[in-house]
């Protein structure tokens, strides 16, 4: 998922800039996220939680 080529391709597909100098930092951030994702394993039923959303009650009135 965090392979250099894959990152470059995924940025390119979205029309986002690809700077070779950025890739290591992007990898670092994505790896931090990936590692932190392990914390979710302690909560196997987290998929049943209603996500906090940005839909405001006032919109629904």
């Amino acid at each position: 998922m965090n392979d250099t080529t894959l990152i470059q391709e995924r940025l390119h597909l979205q029309g986002l800039p690809v700077y070779p100098s950025d890739i290591a930092y992007i990898q670092s951030t994505l790896n931090t996220l990936l590692h932190a994702q392990n914390s979710l394993l302690a909560f196997p039923n987290i998929n049943t939680e209603v996500p906090i959303t940005v839909v405001e009650k006032r919109l629904l009135q």
């Binding site: 990152i7 995924r10 940025l11 979205q14 986002l16 800039p17 700077y19 100098s21 950025d22 890739i23 930092y25 992007i26 951030t29 994505l30 996220l33």
Partner: peptide, 14 residues
């Protein structure tokens, strides 16, 4: 700057 751009770009890849 590179730190901010790469931080934001990583968000486009999640």
């Amino acid at each position: 700057s590179v730190d901010i751009r790469s931080f934001f770009l990583s968000g486009a890849l999640t």
